[in-house]
Design a binder for these strands. Structure first.
Lengths: 129, 129
DNA sequence: AATAATAACAGTAACAGTTCCTAATATTTA
DNA sequence: TAAATATTAGGAACTGTTACTGTTATTATT
């Protein structure tokens, strides 16, 4: 039986409010204003709990800590190789990819994820490249 | 100036020979037959060295250690959610995706990666699902 | 071939991100 | 209100990876 907790609410709320796909550490620091002595372990536990319940999404990034996404609707991500920021892509789901991939595959394909890489808009502006 | 070393050759050869996208640990154990006292650090160092030189590719997997791929030609991957194995997909590169994604994006898109998820052929056979 | 220069090594300590443990606290049930 | 128990804070422990150090292997020079 699951009980509600203020800390878990705060984690949930934090992810709902921001769209920058924060890390556990960032969520922790962000919540610390409201709960000065929240534990990092609590943040981790609730992040994976919410993730297991399907209320948030965990995003694995190469060579860095995991990030979390409050937007559970299927969508793709962009990762800036310059500043390391991550953002959602405005691109409809390519459902046909699963079908296309299944043609030469004898297993079962359930889903796919796409991660784009490049230079984010902000980096394009701030530095001349 | 880079000098050749038997250990690095072994790492390179190991990845060239197998197509199961081994982890650093797996490469280490595999090489240990030939070099009984090779250091895990040496394996890590050479894996990232070869990766930096573009001779192999590093693959980041959610909730597990990094894997390495001796096939540097652009291709997509499949990850089995049951046994955790990883395999190459027989699907041509969807280069149009970068163009499509760029339409509603003011940054610069350089590339993309796709990872399919589901049940691998072997798991489909061995267990009735 | 011998020597010098230095890249790479083995071994190990340190590190980052994450999970696990315990006694205390908060939430729910009765 | 009291009992039951999920959750917490805090910190120890764990995993994957990188960095450090003195030694060894490889290459360049003589």
């Amino acid at each position: 039986m699951i009980k509600r907790s203020r800390q878990r609410e705060a984690v949930r709320r934090c992810l709902a409010e921001r769209c920058d796909h924060p890390t556990a550490e960032t969520v922790y620091l962000s919540i610390k204003d409201e709960f000065p002595n929240i534990s990092l372990g609590t943040v981790y536990r609730n992040l994976s709990l919410l993730s297991d319940m399907g209320e948030i999404k965990k995003i694995t990034v190469s060579g860095g800590p995991d990030r979390f996404d409050g937007n559970t609707a299927p969508h793709y991500h962009f990762f800036c190789s310059r500043c390391g920021c991550m953002m959602d892509m405005d691109l409809q789901m390519q459902t046909d990819l699963d079908i296309l991939a299944a043609e030469h595959f004898s297993g079962r394909i359930e889903s796919h994820e796409i991660q784009f890489t490049g230079i984010c808009p902000e980096c394009m502006n701030s530095h001349k490249i």
